[in-house]
């Protein structure tokens, strides 16, 4: 992406900033000490196990839930599509777009209609009579039509068939490229994130475990496979160690600096996003509750 606006070094525009964010439901903290900065124009994936606090974080950022501590600031206008993709069942798709036009100060009717046409959603049928996937498209169309600076999507790919998933992510990326908006989407479908997300937020038990640029994160992690061993062949933090028969496999976070060379029987493999996320989630599951 080219831009003519020169940002001062190190202070790229921040689209979402959370600091010390916490939300409690009665005695239980759903979100605690959550702090991150999401640079503008990114597509960030919010991943975590069930009940990790993803929906709570998105709801707080969307302004639908008040935080109990800390603060969350999103720059510009925010649109949010909730997990169930709610729309009024008696409204036609055209009515829902009308709602979007009526209740937003910025509205791009053509953009919203393009989205519905792209996914072949009839405008004149009540949403209650549309399929679950079509209803989801209506909810997306309203969010896109409101021209948000930050688009928050809770499980956008759930309930979509594999082809629709690819098309939705493709359209989202096209919107990001065209408008420079920032997208934060939560998902369980980690496999579908490759080539989509360029930023990662990983939640575990209400706390932010990892946050940062995806390429940087993946570049600093390497998987080593070799003969059975109690320690990996390089210095670094072991994220995950697996031993199977005479084989050992380590996922290691490398220290800063040039990547160390390994010799002998050890094989070095690049870490995929899925591999990395699953390893992180597995670790947090084994740990006793914080």
């Amino acid at each position: 992406m080219t831009t003519t606006v020169a940002e001062p070094a190190g202070t790229a525009a921040v689209a979402v900033r959370a600091s010390g964010l916490g939300k409690r439901y009665r005695a239980k903290w759903a979100l605690r000490e959550c702090a991150f900065e999401l640079p503008a124009g990114r597509v960030a994936a919010l991943v975590g196990a069930n009940g990790a606090g993803k929906t709570t974080l998105l709801s707080v950022l969307a302004g639908l839930v008040n935080a109990d501590e800390g603060s969350a600031v999103a720059t510009g206008r925010v649109a949010f599509v909730a997990q169930d993709k709610p729309v009024y069942r008696g409204f036609t798709a055209a009515d829902v777009l009308r709602l979007g036009a009526r209740l937003n100060v910025v509205w791009d009717e053509a953009r919203a209609r393009r989205w519905l046409e792209r996914f072949e959603v009839p405008l004149d049928r009540p949403c209650g009579k549309l399929s679950g996937g079509q209803r989801a498209q209506v909810a997306f169309a309203v969010a896109v039509g409101s021209c948000p600076d930050v688009l928050l999507l809770d499980e956008p790919l759930a309930n979509l068939d594999p082809l629709a998933r690819r098309e939705v992510t493709g359209e989202l990326l096209a919107e990001v490229a065209a408008t420079g908006m920032t997208v934060l989407l939560s998902t369980h479908v980690v496999t579908e994130l490759g080539g989509v997300a360029d930023h990662l937020l990983l939640l575990a038990r209400g706390r932010l475990l990892v946050g940062g640029d995806l390429d940087d994160l993946l570049a600093r992690h390497v998987r080593y496979e070799g003969p059975r061993s109690d320690v990996p062949p390089v210095l670094g933090d072991v994220v995950e160690a697996r031993h199977h028969g005479g084989q050992s496999s380590f996922l290691v976070r490398l220290p800063e600096g040039p990547r160390p060379a390994v010799a002998g029987q050890w094989a070095e493999r690049a870490v995929s996003l899925e591999d990395y996320v699953l390893a992180q989630l597995a670790v947090t599951r084994k740990e006793p509750a914080a």
Binding site: F80, A82, N104, V105
Partner: peptide, 15 residues
Amino acid sequence: EQQTHLLVWSQDLPP
């Protein structure tokens, strides 16, 4: 019940 508060309250209109 129908979760539509999440739709209508996330537009540019405070609840």
